[in-house]
Structure formats: structure tokens, C-alpha cells
Amino acid sequence: MSATIEKVSIIISKGSLEGIYPGLIMANGARMEGIEANVFFTFFGLDAINRAKHEHVRVATVGNPGLHLATWAGAIPGVSALVTRQLAREMEKLDIPPIPEFVEMIADSGAGLYACKASVDLFKLSGEDFIPQVRDIITVGEFYGQAAGGEIIFT
């Protein structure tokens, strides 16, 4: 092992369960390896740090071919909640925390959590809407400043 990664900045842009977890796992995994990490939440990815929504993130059961579930079946009320519960149970067995706990864990690990200003304005949100671990609401330019000298991962 000669080349090493010293810093990563991860963008989470989607609000489904399967859209949010990969970025969180990458961020947490980076910190576990001693790699500096920032997480930038944008668009529906903001749900992961929204105090009213972060406990209610669900698997997309419509328009998600990976589930191999007929579109009409995925649209039945309650199916999304059911699939989400099943997945959450399986994840708990693997010691993968629920999103609110996971985000807090990542903040405690020293990673910086940031909300995207354009999305915050678009959805008419403010700092009050986010969990206290969010360090700041920043512009794209400020994000690039934070990300300087490291790798950027878009999810």
C-alpha cells in the first residue's frame, strides 16, 4: 500500500433510503480509516439531516428496478414502509445504524456535515430545520473550498 487517500468530500443528493446510506457508509468508513471527511447534503439528500424527516426516510418501491417488484405492487399503500422495515431489520443485524444515529455517529467521528444553500433556499428551509450537528449552510463555491486537496464523491 503506497498511495493513500487523505481526505474525501461526499455529496448526498438523493432522499431515498438507498440514496442516502451509501454516502453515509462511505463517510463513516473514511473516518474509520483515519481519512478526513466532509459530507455535503443537497436536494432531497437534505432529508438525512432534516430533524422532521430523518426518521422517515424510505426505500423507493416505485421506479426502482433493483427491487424486482412490479410497479403496480410497489405503489400499493404501505409497501414502501414494509420494505423499509424489512431492510432496517436486516441492517440492524449487520450493525448498520438507523439514519439519525448514523449521521450523529459520523458527526461525532469528526466529519463535517454541511447543507447546500441552493437546496435550502429552494425548499424554503433554514438552519432551524436541521439537526444540531450540521456545521453550516454553504454555497457550491464554499463546498469546493472545503473539498480542496481531497477527493469528491457524488452519490
Partner: peptide, 23 residues
């Protein structure tokens, strides 16, 4: 895992990373 270390070792996650900054 780091999660269970934080829950059961008696040392919270924040302090774990202060003690062992490289993971």
C-alpha cells in the same frame, strides 16, 4: 465495530476519535 465500541466500551464515539485519530 466502532458503533458497538461507542455503545459498550464505556468510551463514547467522539472520545474514541480523539484517542485514536487515525481510526
Amino acid at each position: 465495530s466502532v458503533r458497538s465500541l461507542g455503545k459498550t466500551s464505556g468510551v463514547p464515539i467522539k472520545e474514541l476519535y480523539e484517542l485514536f485519530p487515525k481510526g
